[in-house]
Design a protein around this nucleic acid. Sequence first.
DNA 1: TAGCAATTTCAGAAATTTCTGAAAAGTCGA
DNA 2: TCGACTTTTCAGAAATTTCTGAAATTGCTA
Lengths: 197, 197
Amino acid sequence: MHLPPLVQTFVLHFGEMGSRWGINRTVGQIYALLFVAERPLNADEIVERLGVSRSNVSMGLKELQAWNLVRLQHVPGDRRDYFATPEDIWQIVRTLVEERKKREIDPTLTLLRELLMQEAGTEGERHAQARLGEMHDLFELFAGWYADVRRLETERLVQLLTLGSKVQKVLEVKDRLVRLPGRIGGRAAKSDIKPTD
Amino acid sequence: MHLPPLVQTFVLHFGEMGSRWGINRTVGQIYALLFVAERPLNADEIVERLGVSRSNVSMGLKELQAWNLVRLQHVPGDRRDYFATPEDIWQIVRTLVEERKKREIDPTLTLLRELLMQEAGTEGERHAQARLGEMHDLFELFAGWYADVRRLETERLVQLLTLGSKVQKVLEVKDRLVRLPGRIGGRAAKSDIKPTD
DNA sequence: TAGCAATTTCAGAAATTTCTGAAAAGTCGA
DNA sequence: TCGACTTTTCAGAAATTTCTGAAATTGCTA
């Protein structure tokens, strides 16, 4: 691996973090390398800089493409494939949110729906089902949030994230205004989740 | 493994999802089992129901405790340890958010800060640093959001999550009101992140 | 402080994931 | 269609993670 020290530190870190983020080391390193690169890189350049096998890079790039985290580009007069990360970091956020939803939330949501349809035999199963119902509502809420985030344009997304704990004040303001004639704020959100604290 | 079919399906699914969520199969199964259990369970009961080794359960419980996802309880007249998940599912959300921040965001934030302090030698390093700066700002924003979520009481948390794409309307309303005399909405959030789309 | 019950630790076995090299498949111009 | 170049596939090697059984430790009470 020969890279400027700053880049190398970053690339190695991303490789290590990969396992916490659900990708493997090489995939993390490739992504980090492309992220800081000044121009698109081809597979052999990645092999050269990371010191891993060609086939590993090929598989890593395939996975990053499946995640929609890298874009394939072509350099005129060169038939090799060149890869780059989207420059807009907010596009990356939307992509990650979408993929996480698909992988970490949707499958469980599907299963929970199925289990809630079943007939509970024993007392224990009835209790389990009640608990699964709570989890289902929670997962639905998250799924909706993720879906919303994906659709928001950048400026609104920044606002939503910046909002955080200020939500209280903002909503107070809204509630007050919504009660005025004219109804700007839209209808109240349905919520079958009962707060317990 | 002997469990009612409904519970077994759920437990197995959680075990499989575990790897996507950054925990191992047994840890996922233990969590799922405790989540739907009618009463706290001791280690031997978990061994019995999941059909895994005693030591594996011991390690799994230790990890779940490190994540603050299970609580240790004592049954009077029984010196064994009993375990349960907090009943309030929103407490679980806060815990997960906190732990994810600690594991998935903070280490990278720390590294990015360090790298941004360094002197960039080459042109390539200067470009890399600019890119890392963008990532740093993004991670800061997320870290702040996560920290906020952890602090919100349940009702507000539900509101924040339900908000999603409605953020636009709500903020329009707020903006309008904030400009009125009295300044209810608080000061504008500082934002060094420039939207690019 | 001996004896028993419960829990934890840990070395190595088992399972899983990641990575490589070699071969296959695809692509383009001559 | 050939041949040079490029990418993909995949079986097995290497690395890593997970899991187990046995032993050690903890803590209680008699």
